[in-house]
Nucleic acid binder design. Sequence first.
DNA 1: ATAAGTTTGTGAAGATTTTCACAAGCTCCC
DNA 2: GGGAGCTTGTGAAAATCTTCACAAACTTAT
Lengths: 212, 212
Amino acid sequence: MTLPTKRIAESTVRRLSMYLRYLEGLDAVGQRTASSDELAQLCGTTPAQVRKDLSFFGSFGKRGLGYPVHVLTERLQEILGLRQAWQVVIVGAGKIGSALAEYRGFKQRGFQVVGVYDKNPEKIGRPWGDAVVRDMSTLASDVTAHHVDIAVLAIPADDAQDVVDQIVTAGIRAILSFAPTSLHVPSHVAVKTVNMAMELEGLSYALTNRGA
Amino acid sequence: MTLPTKRIAESTVRRLSMYLRYLEGLDAVGQRTASSDELAQLCGTTPAQVRKDLSFFGSFGKRGLGYPVHVLTERLQEILGLRQAWQVVIVGAGKIGSALAEYRGFKQRGFQVVGVYDKNPEKIGRPWGDAVVRDMSTLASDVTAHHVDIAVLAIPADDAQDVVDQIVTAGIRAILSFAPTSLHVPSHVAVKTVNMAMELEGLSYALTNRGA
DNA sequence: ATAAGTTTGTGAAGATTTTCACAAGCTCCC
DNA sequence: GGGAGCTTGTGAAAATCTTCACAAACTTAT
């Protein structure tokens, strides 16, 4: 069904995700079609970029009219793999993991939190959202037993690689890390890192060198 | 002092930030020099990339030896604008803002939280870290009065553009947004957006299309 | 002092991503 | 039904970013 002949750039996938967000909004208010120009303005990109991105996956639009909102919404969900449920564990029962689990769009889009883990004895056993914080020592075996797809790492940088090695061995397939460190994984495991310090430092750079 | 003749790519700046993180670590344990190869392995990039990135700002290394850790650390801090204090406000007194303010590297690198804002009357006036949550209606005037440099937005997508417009008018120069929406600002304002949903969807895409 | 062994700095080549530009196709109105 | 007016889809061009490859320069050993 989804058969992009070439490898799709990460930047393209990020934009697809953004198109989807706005298309869902347009669909909700009953708008039937949207042009590449309209999508581009909403997403802060260019019409040509929108058309090119979508063209990798087929031709959905009608010339003279634009793209059918509802159809394209479903197609993007399919392309992005959002029409199925993913099993997610959150590692680190702190503020970040909590913020993520709280975010309504999270569950809505098929990301099911099946476990929360921490190594701090004071946190283990405590209720946490719908779940209970479990001992990190059971993480690896749980990942294997429940076929967990994605692990969200919200733990200190120094602990991150060790946990990654464990869950990779246990069969994890994707990792979203908030630890400010680079992670080494085999090539079949997908990794994204969100590094807040890096973003802030990017702003600091921009403020410092704005004239140049 | 810092005079990169060309515009520096955002990806380069992100890597500089990462080099700095590891260099600080090496410096702390007393290592005197580091080769491009060592830095590349730590950061998950290539030696050529490291050398190219650093070469934009001058030649810091010694052939046959590598880069002087301490000198390069200071130079990168300077380049990234981290040898001065930035005034930061956090908008939205929720989990994300709290996680950020809690992060020790935050203050350590010169990002001073001078105010936390929320529009929820139940939160206004409550203690929050070292500060007290203030009414969002005072945000704009505070930004102007205290020459705030950076605003961290941890609020719902629907509220984001409105707040952005206010603080831009009030003189903000940089924004780090966690709201899952694109923001429109004049070109003299720097913006970074961290979109967790987008990252997760990127992983979903990778899981779905891993074979291709 | 010399030779052997490293490692930087950097033009040039290569790869990737974005933008351009326009033919082809669709709608709507008269 | 035909023409005016939009909008897509897409090769090709342009821009951007990464990798290559090697001379130059430094260290260390002898």
